[in-house]
């Protein structure tokens, strides 16, 4: 789990200046995405996932992360990409969003990188593609473009107004 180690190290000496930020970049299909490192708790390997009924398809299920039960979101399915069998590269990125811990299945975790804020360009208005509403910007890197993902929004929308509506609505329809 070298990635975790790297992360810990980075967290340890994280004292970024105002102009820079650190990202964890990961692969999803052909595209490379970036998430702010402060959101990422750890990166783990795929393990046994307990499937859960009454949830949207992209909720792969629940795992036991050191005695905590956390849900696993398949980002491919979330973005409407075709499902892909697990490979050696597949990872679960554990992120903390608004006090909740959620695992995100990604094709691969690439690296931790530091960018300056001027490298971020606003997302082009006409980008069509998976999860475009969760993009906060594009980062030009030497090797290509990195898509900045608003992970809070992504997971929040899922939880609050997901396809099954809010919890309380469910509870009501339940009793009647």
């Amino acid at each position: 789990m070298s990635a975790t180690e790297t992360l810990t190290k980075v967290h340890g000496r994280k004292q970024e200046g105002a102009g820079t930020m650190q990202l964890v970049s990961f692969q999803l299909g052909q595209e490379e995405y970036g998430v702010e490192i402060t959101k990422v708790q750890e990166i783990i390997l795929m393990g046994e996932i307990t499937r859960v009924p009454q949830t949207p398809p992209y909720i792969k299920g629940l795992i036991n992360l050191r005695s905590t039960v956390i849900p696993i979101v398949d980002l491919r399915l979330r973005f409407g990409l075709p499902e892909q069998p697990t490979t050696d590269e597949t990872r679960i990125m554990v992120v903390n969003v608004r006090g909740k811990t959620v695992g995100i299945v990604v094709d691969a975790v690439n690296e931790v990188l530091r960018i300056s804020r001027d490298q971020i360009a606003p997302p082009p208005p006409a980008v069509a593609g998976p999860g475009r509403e969760y993009l906060t910007g594009l980062v030009r890197l030497n090797k290509g473009l990195l898509i900045l993902l608003d992970i809070d929004k992504l997971l929040d929308e899922e939880q609050v107004s997901g396809p099954f509506g809010s919890v309380s609505e469910n509870a009501e329809s339940f009793v009647n």
């Binding site: 009924p53 009454q54 039960v69 956390i70 959620v102 469910n170 509870a171």
Partner: peptide, 13 residues
Amino acid sequence: KSLADNYRNIPGL
């Protein structure tokens, strides 16, 4: 373990 801790309550569970 509550499901709502990290996710949300699921009817039937």
